[in-house]
Structure formats: C-alpha cells, structure tokens
C-alpha cells in the first residue's frame, strides 16, 4: 500500500513528529511504500539543518535525512519554511510547494496526518 504522511508540528516541542517517525518505520517494516512525507506549518523545523540537540538526545533532522537517503520523497513546504526563515534543510529533503502535498495525497492509498 502507498502511504503519504503529513507532519504539521515542529520537533521537540510536541510528540507529533516522533509519532510520525515511529509510524513510518513500522509501515516500512510491514512492506508498505511511503509515497511521500510532507512537512507543513511549524513542521518544517523538523528538517532544519541548523539544529544541534544535546548529544544524548535523538536528532530529529538526521532521522528524517536518513529516511530520505533510502529514497523516500521528503518535502518541506517552501512557503512555510520561508515564513520561518528555515531555509537550510538537511540532505535528502526537498523544498517545494503545497502542490506536492496535493500530488502525494492523490497518488497515495492513504494519507495520515500528524500534528498538534
């Protein structure tokens, strides 16, 4: 099954991005294809290349980058990122418009939204 995921909340402040990550890992383990991951609203901060969390904590942006390195299409909403000055993304993440969310949603069998 093709699954698209939309994440609308930032890292560390809220559990949403963690839930999304665990869900996606489980979906991959069950043999599903992730059609795309779209970071929306404050969610764009999840892939900020400038984050430096304490070393004994999970590194949210690197997690997403590692998923992107496996070929999963990861997009941060360009309008949301520009508004927030969050224009430096980790590797394997694309900046693009809401049209990408529309395409992912239309092409996937399922859309799962996470957020506050």
């Amino acid at each position: 099954m093709k699954i698209a995921v939309c994440i609308g909340e930032g890292p560390y402040n809220h559990e949403a991005a963690d839930s999304a990550y665990h869900f996606i890992r489980a979906a991959l383990d069950r043999g599903h294809q992730i059609q795309g991951i779209f970071f929306y609203h404050d969610g764009v901060h999840n892939v900020n290349a400038l984050m430096e969390p304490p070393q004994d904590e999970r590194h949210m942006a690197n997690r997403w980058s590692a998923l992107g390195a496996t070929g999963i299409h990861i997009v941060a909403c360009v309008t949301a990122a520009k508004r927030r000055g969050a224009m430096e993304q980790v590797a394997h993440v694309e900046l693009a418009g809401l049209g990408q969310l529309a395409m992912m949603t239309i092409q996937a069998d399922r859309l799962v939204c996470f957020g506050d």
Binding site: I3, G8, F23, A26, D29, R30, R110, L111, D116
Partner: peptide, 19 residues
C-alpha cells in the same frame, strides 16, 4: 496496540486525524 498495529489499522481504514 503498537505502531505496527497502528499501520494495520491504516491498512484497513481511511484516516481522519482529530488534531
């Protein structure tokens, strides 16, 4: 349930997130 169970529910149903 666990995250795998969450995925299984998504396999069976469309989703509405009450955010």
């Amino acid at each position: 349930t666990d995250y795998a169970g969450f995925v299984s529910l998504v396999e069976q149903h469309k989703v509405h997130a009450w955010l």
